[in-house]
Nucleic acid binder design. Sequence first.
DNA 1: CGAAATATGATGTACGTTCGTCAAAACAGC
DNA 2: GCTGTTTTGACGAACGTACATCATATTTCG
Lengths: 340, 340
Amino acid sequence: MGRATIHDVARVAGVSLSTVDRVLNGRETVRPGTRDRVEDAMRALNYVRNAAAANLARKRDFRFLFLLPGGQNTFMRMLEAEVGDYGQQFAADSVDIEVRTLPPFDAEALQSALKQIDPGSVSGVALVAVDTPGVRDAVRSLRAHGVPVVTLVSDLPSELREHFVGINNIWAGRTAASLLGRFCGRAAGHIAVVAGSTVLQDHAERYLGFQQVLSADFPHLVALPALEALDDAETAERLLSETLAQHDDIVGIYSLGAGNRGVVAAIDRLERSPPTVLHELTEYSRGWLLSGKIDAVIRQDPAREARSAIRTLVAMSNGKSFHRDENRVGIEIFLRDNLP
Amino acid sequence: MGRATIHDVARVAGVSLSTVDRVLNGRETVRPGTRDRVEDAMRALNYVRNAAAANLARKRDFRFLFLLPGGQNTFMRMLEAEVGDYGQQFAADSVDIEVRTLPPFDAEALQSALKQIDPGSVSGVALVAVDTPGVRDAVRSLRAHGVPVVTLVSDLPSELREHFVGINNIWAGRTAASLLGRFCGRAAGHIAVVAGSTVLQDHAERYLGFQQVLSADFPHLVALPALEALDDAETAERLLSETLAQHDDIVGIYSLGAGNRGVVAAIDRLERSPPTVLHELTEYSRGWLLSGKIDAVIRQDPAREARSAIRTLVAMSNGKSFHRDENRVGIEIFLRDNLP
DNA sequence: CGAAATATGATGTACGTTCGTCAAAACAGC
DNA sequence: GCTGTTTTGACGAACGTACATCATATTTCG
C-alpha cells in the first residue's frame, strides 16, 4: 500500500513510462489528450513525486555562498554558526555551503566579494546587504548571470533580489515602541536610542517604526536622534553616557543595533535605570534579562533565518515553490520568563 | 567533487562495499581492526550517508497516529490542521499520518483508542495526554511493544513517554504576569483571572506561574481567584461581568483558557478597559489586538508543535538523534505590532 | 496516398544505498 | 596442518526517478 509511482501512473493512464516522464518534466511535446490522461491518472492515484529518488537520479549538486559580516557582532556569529550547522544537515541533499565573512559595514569589501564570484560555480548567494550603488550593481550582475540572490537580515530594494529572509524591521521598531511605551507608564520624557549605522537599512527602519508608534500612541515620550555606535560596545557606552548626562528626563532606552555590552555598562552606572529594550538574544542579553538590568529583548531567530535562507535557495535552484509561511521569520519578544 | 559515497569509503579503507555496509549498519560482526579502518576512512572523507538513497533502498514506510481532542477548541482545530498539512509535506519522505479526534478530556475514550492500536502497523503515536492510570497503562503497553510515544500540549510523567512537545505552562503564566504587571503601571488593585477549569493541569499551572510573579514582582497587584468559565464564552462573559461589577479596583485582566469572545464582550461594556492578556492567537484575538481591545497574546505555535511532533517521531523511528533546540516549542508573545 | 513530421514506446543505464546469497579468505584451536 | 568457525569479498537485485537513444506508431499536409 505504498505511495503511487510513475509506473502506476503509466499503467493507469495506459501510456508508457517515457510519456509519464515527459509530462512530469515537460520534456518534449505531448499531445494534449495524452497529457490529460496522464494528469488524470496522477490525480486519481494521488501521485506525489518521490523527491528523494528524483534528486538521487538527478545527481544534483548545489553550492551556495553565504556572505556575512565578520567582527564581534554576536548575532552574526550565531547566524554563521547556524548556517554551518544547517549546512551539515543539508549535506544529505547534496547541498554544499560555503560561508565567507567580510569586514562589517564595509560596502567595498562586499562589492568586491560579489564581483569575484564565478556564476558558473555557484548556484546561489545569500548576503547581509549593505545598500550602496556598487553593491546593487554587483548583485544585479550576479542575477543577470542566473545566480539567485537572497538577502539576509538586511535587505536591498526588492527588485534586486529574489527573496528576503529576515524580519520586517519597521515592525520590529514598532514592537519595541509598543513595549517600551507601556513599560514607561505615564512619565513623560525622552527615549535614548542607540543604533549601529544609518547605512544599514534595517537600523533606519527600526528607528522609523519606533518613532511611528511613539508619536502616535505615546506622545508624552520623545525619541532622541539615534546614536551611531557602529555596533561597537565602547562607542555605545561613551555616546549613551554622554546623552544620559545631557538629558535628565530620559525615561527609556532602546538599543536597536549591536554593541549592547556598552549600553548596559552605561545603564549600570545610573542610580535608577529606565526601562530598556534591546535587540537579539545572546548569552549576555539573556543574563541581563534574568538579572533585571533590561526589560525585554526583541529578536529574529538566527536558526530560523539560516534554515529559511538555505531552504529558499534550494527551492529556487529546484525551480520549485516553497512554503512562504514556514520560511517566514517572526519578530520575537522575550522577557525574563519566556526565554528559550 | 561530489560527496563521498560508500564506494569511496571502501576504496580508501581497502575493504569491500559489503564491509562498509556492515560497519555502517551494524549488521554482522566486523573485526575491530577492520571497523577502525572503515571509520577512519569515513572521517577522512567526511562521509555523510545519503539519507535519500538509504530510505529509498530501505523502502521505509512510516505510519504515525495522532490522537487529538475534538470539539470547538480553536487551538486544537488549528493543531489538527497543521498536522494534516505537515503530513502532506512529509509524504515525500514516505511518512503517512493519520489524525484521529476523540471526545475532549475523555480519558476512557483515549485509553480505548490507545488499546486498539496494533503495534505492528503503527510506527509512532502522538497524543494530547489526559493523565489517568488507564491511559498511563495503555501508553506503557504501547511502548513495551516498541511503539514510540510522544505527548503533545499536555504531558504525562516523563518516564512514560519518549518526548513532550509543548510549552511549560508555569512559565507561560509567569510571562503573562510579567507583561500585565508592567502594563498596569503603578496603580494598585486586583487582576481578574478567567480560566477554563482548575481541574485542567495546564490551566492550574498557568495560574500558579502568574501568581508567583505577581506576588514577587508586583505586590501592589493581587490576582483574584480564577473564574471557572469552562472554556465557554457565555459563562466567561457572565462571570467576568459579575466580578467587574463587584470590584471597582480591577486594573488588569488575564484569561488563561479559551472562551475569550466572552471575555472581550465583558470588557467591551466597560468605559475604560484595563490592560488585558489572553492565550492563543486566533482570528479573533488577532482582531482584538489590532483594534486595541486587548494588549497582548501569549501562544504556543500549533504549526511548530505539529512539525516538532512529526520530526521527533521520524527521528525516533530512524533511531537517530534529533536537534532538541530545533524541536523546542517556545512561549510566544504577540502585540499588535509583531503579529505574524 | 504517401512522405515527412510528430508523438509515443521500449529499453537500458545511472544515482547511492540496502539487503541477501554464496564463495573465498583469514583466523582459531588442537 | 587440518578442521571448523569467523570474517570478508563479490555480485546482483531492488528502491523510484531521470535521461538518453532508437524504434515504431500516429498524425499532418501537400
